[in-house]
Amino acid sequence: MNLVHLRSEWAPNVTRELLAGAVVALALIPEAIAFSIIAGVDPKVGLYASFCIAVVTAFAGGRPAMISAATGAMALLMVGLVKDHGVGYLFAATILTGLLQIVAGALHLGNLMRFVSRSVVTGFVNALAILIFLAQMPEL
């Protein structure tokens, strides 16, 4: 493989990739802080975790429309875990979640999402928004 082929495959438009990375990084900082506050951990934990996710995604390779960041759904689920068992269990739960996602991807379980109706997905997202709002009320 020559250098031109590698460049065209891995970095077809370096300027666009750098700009996209900068925008995502700037958007990820407040998101990581907010979700770590929701989960009940120190905001530094959220920032370090977001950085680690970005590095792993950069080396493992992302896909278009793939979300590689903290999510509100996971932050809401982790509140009880952190409250009951501490941050140590949060790391173990994160590793286990990643392994389950790898297994689900290998088994092509994403195809089952075709059977979930649009109204169920809309209800899930709306409920998630309400729960995030309620979780922020003490901070207000």
Rank of each mutant, 00 (worst) to 15 (best):
F91H: 02
I38D: 01
A22N: 01
A39K: 00
V4D: 12
F124K: 09
A34I: 14
G110R: 09
A20P: 03
P12H: 10
V55N: 12
Q136G: 12
L77T: 02
I33V: 15
A69S: 15
A73K: 00
W10I: 12
G105A: 06
L81R: 04
V41N: 03
V120A: 10
A69G: 14
A39L: 02
I132V: 15
L90C: 05
P138I: 12
Y48R: 00
H5I: 07
L107P: 02
L140A: 10
F35Q: 01
L90D: 03
A65C: 07
G62D: 01
G110L: 03
V23T: 14
T15L: 12
L100V: 14
Q136N: 13
A93Q: 04
L100W: 05
F59Y: 11
S50C: 07
V82E: 07
K44E: 09
L76S: 08
L77W: 05
G62C: 03
L3H: 08
T97N: 11
V79W: 03
L134C: 15
P30G: 07
G86S: 07
G40E: 04
I102D: 06
A127M: 11
L3V: 11
N111K: 14
A65P: 00
L18I: 11
S8F: 03
G110K: 09
E139T: 14
M1P: 13
I37V: 12
A34G: 04
L131S: 15
E31Y: 03
P30C: 07
A22C: 10
H85D: 13
G88F: 10
V103G: 01
N111G: 12
L112E: 07
L3M: 06
G123M: 07
V14L: 15
A49W: 01
S119A: 11
L26T: 14
P12D: 05
L3Y: 06
A70G: 13
I102S: 09
V4T: 14
L28N: 13
A69W: 06
N126I: 13
Q101A: 15
Q101Y: 03
A54W: 01
Y48V: 15
A92Y: 06
M74H: 06
V41L: 09
G72M: 08
A11W: 07
L3S: 10
A49C: 05
A69D: 09
M113Q: 07
L3C: 00
L140S: 02
V4P: 01
L107I: 08
G88P: 04
F115K: 08
Y48K: 00
T57C: 05
I130T: 12
L140M: 09
I37R: 13
G105Y: 09
A65H: 13
